[in-house]
């Protein structure tokens, strides 16, 4: 079980570092369709920043900001964005994930619509991977039992 530490150097440096890690993760997601990176890698980096906050600030503080229920909700929202864009292309008389058909509702040319469609899918993948990576770490470190339940049992 990871509890709240009292080392001020580690806590301060991690608090300063986490926003920059998250900014870099958003950069990786946003530039994923024409440079190395993408939704999966950016989502993993975003999840790693949450894990860094969990390690340095303890369970109670992270649970207040980003609890396990919100993680489950975010992973479902990510899958919904991905499949929603896919089915939207089906409704516009294209194949599944055929982004070029999105030009009918985005009012841009088909090549630009393809780029925007891939960006939307990357954002959905990033959401899902971030939430699932955090959820896996949450489950391994707490053993599937949240400290609130343990306190109630005692």
């Amino acid at each position: 079980m990871i509890i709240r530490g009292e080392d001020i150097i580690i806590k301060t440096i991690s608090r300063v570092l986490v926003p920059f890690i998250q900014l870099y993760a958003l950069y990786v997601i946003m530039h994923g369709h024409y440079s190395p990176g993408g939704g999966f890698q950016g989502g993993v980096i975003l999840g790693a920043s949450m894990v860094l906050l969990f390690i340095t600030h303890g369970y109670a503080e992270v649970n207040r900001k980003f609890s396990e229920n919100i993680a489950v909700l975010f992973s479902s929202i990510g899958v919904l964005i991905y499949s929603g864009i896919g089915f939207l292309c089906l409704l516009l008389l294209g194949n599944y994930l055929d982004y070029s058909k999105l030009y009918k509702i985005l009012s841009v040319d088909p090549a630009h619509a393809r780029s925007l469609g891939i960006l939307g899918v990357e954002i959905g993948v990033g959401f899902a991977v971030m939430a699932v990576m955090f959820s896996i770490f949450f489950d391994i470190s707490t053993g599937g039992v949240s400290p609130d339940d343990e306190e109630e049992a005692e």
């Binding site: 790693a48 390690i55 896996i136 391994i140």
Partner: peptide, 17 residues
């Protein structure tokens, strides 16, 4: 792209897990 995935997933999250 594979190098990026190896660095972020295996060396980052994998070690933490």
């Amino acid at each position: 792209d594979v190098a990026f995935t190896e660095a972020s997933v295996s060396a980052g999250i994998g070690t933490i897990l």
